[in-house]
Amino acid sequence: MKGMSLIVKTISDFVVGFIIIFGAYIVLYGHLTPGGGFAGGVIIASAFILLMLAHGKDVAFSKLGERAAHILDSAGALAFLLIGWVGVVGGYFFMNVFGRGEQFRLLSSGMILPGNIAIAFKVASSLFLVFSALAVFRRRSFRSMIEGELR
């Protein structure tokens, strides 16, 4: 059986959804409460890392493929840059051209909310990729090390 024991698997399956929802909350309310794109992105990534620890990398990759993570990684950064470009309409790079809305409402403070979402995608996917690179690379290099010694 790959991964950890049945207890760990069951519990982690149960909490993963909550972790992702909590992360999304931190991202979406980043402009109103403490938190933001980076913190929320880290929390979302930790849900996938938990899946990888409990079930092994195959299950985690079936939820979020390596290729999809790479695309999200670049897309998040590009989306943030695009938000900067939208500001050029107002005369300056990163100018807040969206309406500021009513204070303490979810849809307020203009470009900070879309900016946070873009950052969250970037952070979540790249942190997941960093972790999976460590998980995959360690095994590969260990094997090559042993083979090198045998030779």
Partner: peptide, 16 residues
């Protein structure tokens, strides 16, 4: 800054 940064993130995405 914006041009090389945009290129840096487009390249791995389109590279697929």
């Amino acid at each position: 800054v914006a041009i090389p940064l945009g290129a840096a993130f487009l390249i791995p995405m389109l590279g697929i």
